[in-house]
Design a binder for these strands. Structure first.
Lengths: 329, 329
DNA sequence: CTGTTAGCGCTTTCAG
DNA sequence: CTGAAAGCGCTAACAG
């Protein structure tokens, strides 16, 4: 079926070494024979055998991505950015999905290494010393994002903590007196890697502390948030706003409030986080915290390729965030 | 860094052949030496070199996906289904994105073949005899979906034509007398592969013909659909409904109508196609045509793996569709 | 039951 | 400037 450099050599009556010199324009070859070889290669439709090349060169020009969160709506943008940048830099992308299964995540990582990817991008559900060691021992460069795995492994993301603090300040400035913070994933705290979610949470507590009594806060850290919100809204007379750890929850809240006839923002304010593209179609438009998933993906690949090339990269890289003022606050 | 079967052989004082027999539990080996070898392999943390294996076996256990449409919201579901099924069947997924660039699509296909993927899943933007030939000559099994490339290449998707006809019948049954069909991508007809979009369009025309004068139809096949819709809504007194070639356009229309104070469904009905998951958060809930992206992805992989195994597969596979009655009609 | 040999297709010395 | 040979790590066929 496919042609080998050996065949070209035979046809041209030269050795494989010479063919190789022609094909990879390496010095030390007569321009005329080179010309001849290239012509024959062209005619045969010769294509180098990538596996064989990789085997001898020790580099596959491929990177692996290990992701858990297909439901997170920034997924398409992230994957798009990663693939696009990788492709620009000459790398192919192995995509592996873990569906939040810690064991599967380890397997994916191991398999990628078995396939000799040059580097790995990791959005992890695992955490802890044991896992840190596992990742360190893989023997290939790893860049993490979304959830931190180790202080020693480069991490890129938005500054969740500061972002929430900025949001709280903004809400205070808008005149809100009570903030209902909704972060259902926190219920899983300790059992799974929730670094980003926890950073947001920590940012919120800090912001409230900084407000020094000017703001009161309610924390809802479980699945039954819709009911609990309703209860809270009935109490007291402070101007209230609901701040959700991600747009996904904010949208569910919005839907629920609409059903109950509670008006946003007249009766209560609402704010999300992520600026997922679904928001484009939502009324009233949702206030949220935006950052560029494109930038995260693109830079993550850049960092990884730098590491692959043996260059040092910063252990923490933060992409900028921005408060989007929608109609919901 | 990483251990080779050679090293195990030396440590155990046997030959590589024997090590191979132990590792791949092939017959013809003394259980005790096998035991010994496996133990050493375990201790060394031996992992077979996948590239070397692939090189000699001629199979990489990887498949490639070539997609153009990251914006289409069924993308995450599709990719998820594909990766999940591939993984279950022991295959790794190379994801390549073309951003609707025909030349890039060809490159992606060629590169995947260079990397010796065992098979390819293709959602194509290219079409035509030339491209058909190109794909046929790749030398690996290809399964297409979404857009048909050739009658000879297996294709899996929803029956777009029938789906639209079912939708039109349903709209007629609901008492609508005039249907505004919105399909902006059709403006590119001829220049790019729009098979699915064209099938939907053809289905619409057929349905209108079948209705034999009971229904009147307006076709909007360009970007300026919002303005044109407004114009059409002002004319005549028939009960009107807007049928969009995909939910994405339906949502844009909905947003526009809300802004203009035109009520859905009281003033005009609205229906989409695809049942993208954004709809979950939309009010009024959108009527649409649903099909399972999961099923498309999963079955596409199954078909591909069948082809890789040399089995014959049907040239056309249709996944079922279903009309979803939302509040918008 | 085990060792040897010959590749898979390519790159990379080292001679000539 | 070119050829020959060794080797990447593994598998498979053939002896012993």
């Amino acid at each position: 079926m496919s042609k080998t450099s050996q065949q070209i050599a035979e046809i041209c009556g030269v050795s494989r070494g010479t063919v190789d010199r022609a094909l990879n324009n390496r010095p030390g070859i007569n321009p005329e024979t080179k010309e001849r070889i290239l012509k024959v290669a062209e005619q045969l439709g010769y294509r180098p055998h990538f596996l064989a090349q990789s085997l001898v060169k020790g580099s596959t020009k491929s990177i692996g991505a290990v992701l858990f969160d297909i439901n997170n709506r920034i997924f398409p943008q992230l994957v798009n950015a990663i693939e696009t940048r990788a492709s620009e830099l000459g790398y192919f992308l192995y995509l592996t999905l873990t569906n939040k299964d810690p064991e599967k995540e380890r397997e994916c990582l191991q398999h990628l290494v078995d396939r000799r990817v040059d580097g790995i991008l990791l959005l992890s559900v695992n955490k802890g010393d044991d896992f840190e060691r596992f990742v360190s021992k893989l023997g290939v460069p790893v860049i993490t994002f979304g959830n931190l795995v180790s202080d020693e492994i480069p991490y890129i993301w938005v500054d969740d903590r500061k972002a929430i603090r900025d949001a709280v300040k903004r809400l205070a400035a808008l005149g809100y007196e009570e903030i209902i913070y909704v972060s259902p994933p926190m219920a899983l705290s300790g059992r799974t890697n929730l670094y980003a979610v926890e950073q947001r949470h920590a940012g919120f507590r800090q912001a409230i502390a900084e407000a020094g009594g000017a703001l009161s806060a309610d924390l809802i850290l479980h699945k039954g948030y819709l009911e609990e919100i309703e209860g809270l809204l009935r109490k007291g007379s402070k101007r209230k706003v609901i701040l959700c750890t991600s747009d996904k929850y904010a949208l569910k809240v919005l839907l629920h409030l609409k059903k109950k006839g509670i008006r946003v923002p007249q009766d209560v304010g609402l704010m999300g986080f992520d600026n997922i593209d679904t928001l484009e179609y939502i009324t009233p438009s949702l206030s949220t915290i935006a950052y560029s998933a494109d930038e995260v993906g693109t830079k993550a690949v850049d960092l990884l390729v730098d590491r692959i090339a043996g260059r040092n990269v910063p252990l923490r890289t933060m992409v900028p965030h921005e408060i989007i003022e929608g109609e919901s606050t």
